[in-house]
Design a protein around this nucleic acid. Structure first.
Lengths: 191, 191
DNA sequence: GGTAAAAATTGACCTATGGTAAGAAACTAG
DNA sequence: CTAGTTTCTTACCATAGGTCAATTTTTACC
């Protein structure tokens, strides 16, 4: 929990009241590798803040293939925001890639907290702004880079993640098959 | 300006004070088709709210090809958020696709307004939440759909935009060449 | 430590989409 | 209306990346 408080305070103030409230709505949990936190089709009630480990969110397409939307490591949030903000059941699955410690929040509680504590709303707004920027960049990368270039960028941006993920996780994040990613890696070693 | 006030009030309250402030920092402008509001490489100072017309933001890749990040019509915001939130010069170009009426804001003024008026910060947070959801969906579509399927979805989601844009604008948004889009359209007519 | 399961690689082939270039069509401005 | 420019289409060939199936490597577990 200190990680989250610290993260908030690193960019702005947070009243003691708000801090206490945040504690009161939080639940510390540990998930084992392979556990599913949110399952496609079910109602999404929770949002997770990762304090240790690695998780990912992904969906299945009509042929049953997986497509990774996001990886989350230390100090990242993860959930199915599509479901939460459209008030639908989950289109995404959130899976634990290695044993992870997370802080679980009920989306409703966080929502209420935003309205109660302007400091927290500011924090959330800033998080979202940065998130929009990174999603914009990802879209532009997808539009203009080759699979090989996207992989280079991925390795550069998430050096820590690669050790927890399988190749096909990364492939499905980059938008290529695992076979293609395998060939791309072979080429890199050669040159 | 009424469009913006109305948009804000449609989802929440806005104090008279905030409304007055918003007016005081706004400038109504009209841009002709083809005009450039933000140019790649220059400092980005402004954010635009579209009240009429159609604009788009795009970048050039290393081969000089254009890639469209966003279209903006009535009641949408547009700028180079990557530049604004990283405090760098523009990587995007914002172009007017048909004569458009916009409300221009200095990013700094809006930033200050967020800190002055909690109502406005709440509004912004909600806008960003919805934006994150739509960017997430776009990424998942890019990962799992064929060019043809993405085009169908585009036409469905932005029926109004097609009349203002050239084919290559749409192609560069979907991540295909204009030639491919042309072929895709021929196929649709056949079947 | 040995075996079963999962993941990664490899090879042969295939397909969607890209590149190029030329002609047709649609605007634009005098 | 006409010439010039921009955009769109079409045809042909090229290629990145996909598919499928085997094989090897790694990992997990009794």
């Amino acid at each position: 929990m200190e990680e989250l408080i610290e993260k908030i305070k690193s960019s702005q103030s947070l009243s003691q009241e708000a801090e206490d409230y945040l504690y009161s709505i939080s639940t510390n949990k540990t998930f084992a590798k392979g556990e599913i936190l949110i399952r496609q089709g079910q109602r999404v009630k929770n949002i997770y803040f990762v304090t240790d480990g690695c998780l990912r969110s992904y969906c299945y397409d009509k042929n049953g293939k997986e497509h990774t939307l996001q990886f989350a490591i230390k100090k990242w949030w993860i959930s199915d925001y599509i479901a939460i903000h459209s008030d639908e059941s989950a289109t995404l699955t959130v899976e634990c890639l290695k044993e992870s410690k997370v802080i679980e929040f009920k989306a409703k509680d966080l929502e209420l907290m935003l309205t109660l504590f302007p400091d927290f709303e500011r924090f959330q707004r800033k998080i979202l702004e940065r998130h929009v920027v990174s999603l914009n960049k990802r879209i532009l990368n997808q539009l203009q880079l080759t699979a090989s270039e996207r992989y280079d960028l991925f390795v550069e941006q998430y050096p820590a993640i690669e050790q927890y993920t399988h190749n096909y996780h990364i492939a499905s994040y980059l938008g290529v098959t695992q076979e293609s990613l395998s060939r791309i890696r072979v080429e890199k070693v050669k040159h």
